[in-house]
Write a protein that binds this DNA or RNA. Sequence first.
DNA 1: GTCTATATCAGGATAGAC
DNA 2: GTCTATCCTGATATAGAC
Lengths: 195, 195
Amino acid sequence: MARKKNSSADVTGPRIRAAALRLFARHGYAAVSMRQIATEVGVQAGTLYLYTPDKQSLLFDLMQQHMQDLLAELAILPPATTPLADLENFTRFHIRFHQARSDAVFISYMELRNLEPANFDRIEALRRDYEAHLVTILARGKAAHVFELPDTKLATFAVIAMLTGVNTWFREGGRLSLDAVEEIYWQMVRKAVGA
Amino acid sequence: MARKKNSSADVTGPRIRAAALRLFARHGYAAVSMRQIATEVGVQAGTLYLYTPDKQSLLFDLMQQHMQDLLAELAILPPATTPLADLENFTRFHIRFHQARSDAVFISYMELRNLEPANFDRIEALRRDYEAHLVTILARGKAAHVFELPDTKLATFAVIAMLTGVNTWFREGGRLSLDAVEEIYWQMVRKAVGA
DNA sequence: GTCTATATCAGGATAGAC
DNA sequence: GTCTATCCTGATATAGAC
């Protein structure tokens, strides 16, 4: 079926989401007005409502998309043959993926409290899926006696917190390349789990 | 000099700050109105302005107080005789202190972007003072060859992120006591720094 | 020291012209 | 598909009564 020639709907929608992502990350969901988002995109405030039913949906869609992307990318990671290699893959993947989408990461961790309960539950479920992946890796390594872990669940929390923390300070063009950071963190993770 | 008999100024001020702390932590600075704070305290909105010049000062004061408390408590930690003992003290202190003030911690990490630039700089300086303390411990241990660290600064970030992460999941009365959590995290920190 | 009342402004969202 | 205009609500902050 032919598309309308001058339709900009396909470009305006994504631009609205991109602007909202940027602004929510910089200033926080509650502090950003629909007018600001519209100005950033170069349309009037009313126009936004052609693309989203309301502000809350805009936030939820951004977070859901981020978590789904995260899980999708994780799912296509080449499988490793040992728990140690699995953990290394996960570590490097987590740092790289999160660094490439720092705005979305920021929002997904900071704006949970601005989600309506039903939306919150759905995002939390996705986050738990992601955690579960690391839990599995650590549990396998522990069972195989290659990891020494007092508590698998806490090790999962610790590793994820540690890796996500990279986003708070890493800046492209700084003292260390992302490759170097990956390597250093991997060494710390490896040691932390007793491998 | 005699105080006024029925003055409740000394109690209203702290109650306002306590309410603001709670509400900012739950819903975020931008999402909380002065009316909500006033309602929580049981006064009218206008009354708040007898105790704070504006909403921004209220946020800044809470964050500054938190950071100053943190540094003050850190300063009176009994000094240890080895870098390893120093690191253990720091680890346990960080977990305990942050757990006891989870609202203030939450705000101090999440609401930085809602500070006016001058206020932001002052809070950041305090945060760097705190980090510097851990940097020193790690650098000493590295110099004494009791820690094996590819990068002292990154290890500092990693340890603080890991420890602060406890606040995102720990709940009193859960599976593990705070003592147990402290112990498990200490083991992970110890290994991560190669000790 | 606190309240009531209000000035002033900006927010989310909608209706209808083009 | 976008804009203009607007409704309604609720925000911060202040003035002045009690």
